[in-house]
Design a protein around this nucleic acid. Sequence first.
DNA 1: ATGAAAGCGCTAACAT
DNA 2: ATGTTAGCGCTTTCAT
Lengths: 328, 328
Amino acid sequence: MADIARATGVSPMTVSRAFKAGGLVNTETRDAILKAAEELGYVFDSTASNLRSKKTDFIAVTIPSINNANFADTVGGLSDVLSAQGFQILLGYTNYDMQEEERLIENLLRRKPQAIAVTGGKHTRRAQKLLENANIPVIETWDVPAEPIGHYVGFSNADAVRSMVDHFIEVGYRRIAFIGGDASRDTRGTNRRHGFISALRDHGLDPFRLIDAGPPPISMREGANAMARLLDEFRDTEAVICVSDLSAFGALTECQRREISVPEQIAIGGFGDYEIGGISVPALTTINAHARMIGERTGSLILDLLSGKDSVPHVTIQPQLIVRESSL
Amino acid sequence: MADIARATGVSPMTVSRAFKAGGLVNTETRDAILKAAEELGYVFDSTASNLRSKKTDFIAVTIPSINNANFADTVGGLSDVLSAQGFQILLGYTNYDMQEEERLIENLLRRKPQAIAVTGGKHTRRAQKLLENANIPVIETWDVPAEPIGHYVGFSNADAVRSMVDHFIEVGYRRIAFIGGDASRDTRGTNRRHGFISALRDHGLDPFRLIDAGPPPISMREGANAMARLLDEFRDTEAVICVSDLSAFGALTECQRREISVPEQIAIGGFGDYEIGGISVPALTTINAHARMIGERTGSLILDLLSGKDSVPHVTIQPQLIVRESSL
DNA sequence: ATGAAAGCGCTAACAT
DNA sequence: ATGTTAGCGCTTTCAT
């Protein structure tokens, strides 16, 4: 900036102002400054700006895995809303591990983000404390936390699955199984399984057809393997709900390999409304959790909070049951 | 840091050293400092560190879209290699648009990353210049650039498709079509189509069965729509190669809906070795471009370059043809 | 509309 | 092993 100031015969402060959006600078002066900057190959140094102004325009975001279309959609929504306002997302992957999440949150906070959005409503004690003391907006997503740290944009995974169970029962299925929902790592999957269990109980059915598909992420292949076990262990199963569309599609392919027709011999439901479920033959009944909208709402909430606008503390998303051929 | 220094009776400089990895600090002193830091709820401020030390530990990365398993894999590989060494990735999405890429690169460079990895080997003139003048390692990926800016980790998309054409012809297919490869935005897709065209010509076949699936990203649905057009326009087609596994799977579902058997009535090939292709029924013949390895190699290359180790300037990945049921 | 002075919170460089 | 000094490149604040 000093070089540009010298070249244009103004003070560094005027150069600084010329680069800001609402800078109160004479138009001609600004043009001269921008021209000199381009000629000198000047690149604005935000590290200095960050330090002095205590504004980084970073938004920290943690997701379990980048390689999941649902979370990618959420980040996409967040990114579109926030980068339009000049924010840069600092993305980190927890790999579905709360210890890893803690490390990640600690590292991200050192970068002085102006807000942080985390996936899920359950964290280590220390992570919880770090977030509480960070003194920036904290938004938990994809869940309804038992004790929210700050704000949240989420939904009840259990209730969402319950709505699918109700649908299956209404259509006439009774011997219903569930695939996935590892208790050790994935709270959302676990909540979905809990929702399944309590819904079956409420209908007077015994929820013993539970197939463990291992810790997340649950691949299509693992869904297929789980389906194989289900078909072997509980031959009279009429319907199965899978923890995600990916495992549900894997389960479908296992049926295709065994020439078991879906839904005539067994119905299948998934979760997440991934693209695959809408185009597979048969198409998969699923729950649309509005992944992208979660990101967009989180982004708007952050913008409101940072601009001091008053805003609702909690946003509850309404997941939508989508009935397709696989359960009819 | 001053507070911690006061509380522990040392100088701020010692506190600073206590937080560094190889810090030459007395063990007891360090313990006392870390304890005081924890008690005071101190969070290290990297914005100040970044400015003073001219090291941000940021690595900038641009990809066309976050919602693509191939690019997500590349970022995953990059992230695993780099975050283990304390680097934070600054991710940006170009949405398959070179103008958007230019804006993105300009913004990312202001953050003073220590290296930048971009997807593809073609950029606007200005983006090219920005990268050249950035004075940090620049790595182009997923392609073999005509004029590399710095380093690259990639492969020839055209040659990869050529290997698939060779396979199709060897198996006996002659009337072969190609779906995708929009010329306006996606250089990788375009290169694949070029590879298809020149391979067919080399085999003495006329490559006129080209179905445009629109600008990227090409969804499964768009693949299905393209397949519908192919089946209507060129009824005697024996085989089709799609620009990606996603469109290939969409094409497969269109065949399933029309009760056209694959590969008996028409063979299908994809690109990218997405999970879907390995588990669909029939499984899809594809090209594994080693997306994750591209990320890992790019990460290692960056580590080498930043640590002054000498390293090969260009890494050429060897894509692998994977023959599955859909082309037998 | 522009300028001058001061300082953000660290760490490079040098000293002991 | 630890301390002192200075300063990274911006922007806040106050002045004109």
